[in-house]
Write a protein that binds this DNA or RNA. Structure first.
Lengths: 150, 150
DNA sequence: TGGCATTGGTTGATACTGTCAACTAAAAAG
DNA sequence: CTTTTTAGTTGACAGTATCAACCAATGCCA
């Protein structure tokens, strides 16, 4: 089934370079609009917003799971976002160990800015690629990530 | 598991998750064969070996360029590799500011191990994907990285 | 030829990222 | 009730990335 008569060495290489370029492009794009948040903070903000739009509850746990990150890391990110006034914690009526995370108005505004910046960077990254190719890429990337989760 | 029929996993999202999974898988794979080098050290070693095979010269500059990393970072990686006895510096007859980097025998051996581990991890990552898909993925990843290089 | 900008590389500072282990408190299981 | 899980926090530490200052060799060119 897994046929690896493939010169796969380049998969890792390409991957590394792409993500590095992507991170840097993003960081720069954020800087251009004076958005000083680190990448992981932005990604967490996005998860919280996603929950808001889908009307689901968002805890630190949810973020950790979705981003597949250590929960210690999430704790710290959440702490920063709180201090920045971008989110707030509310008691979780269903579980007194955890708190629900909500965007503040400031957080919502920040999110809007983020989306604009991303749309820009995203379209730049996808220059010369058509929608099918993008879809294919996402599909393959997801499949590989899934394979590696073992 | 909650079927991730994610309406729109963005390219950025997939990318982040994939690279994270990849890094972790690699780190673990290296550990399994008691290869204690960090990822960037391994990648640098690969560049030096590549030069050896192509019979081209390899300086710190070359590595920095190929990996698209800050030269300060490369300096440190090279220092570590020297201390580990995996590479050696030789005077560059063409430019007395720089030195040429060569693998030692120990470095060559390490490289062989690396290749084995990568082949394993690579085939695991590519499970269920065929050669065309891999090729397509690499093509798209390279195209995107190129777009972002501005 | 002598001055000046450039380049290869080093160093220090600083921040972000990722992981692990120990721990508290609440919840769930039995 | 105990026991075991789970949510979240904290401390420690290694790895990664970036920036700025710097030195010495090089290249340019007036």
């Amino acid at each position: 089934m897994p046929q690896n008569n493939v010169p796969e060495t380049s998969v890792g290489e390409s991957l590394h370079r792409l993500l590095h370029a992507y991170k840097r492009a993003m960081r720069q794009a954020y800087q251009e609009v004076n958005l000083t948040l680190a990448v992981s903070h932005i990604r967490s903000l996005k998860v919280i917003n996603h929950a808001r739009e889908k009307n689901t509850l968002c805890t630190a746990q949810v973020i950790a799971e979705r981003l597949q990150r250590d929960k210690a890391q999430i704790t710290r990110v959440v702490k920063d976002l709180l201090e920045e006034g971008l989110i707030e914690k509310r008691d979780n009526p269903e579980d007194r160990r955890s708190q629900l995370l909500h965007l503040t108005q400031k957080g919502v505004d920040a999110y809007k800015t983020i989306k604009e910046v991303e749309a820009l960077a995203g379209s730049r990254m996808a220059q010369g690629l058509n929608a099918d190719e993008i879809r294919e890429f996402v599909k393959l990337a997801n499949a590989m990530a899934e394979n590696l989760k073992h």
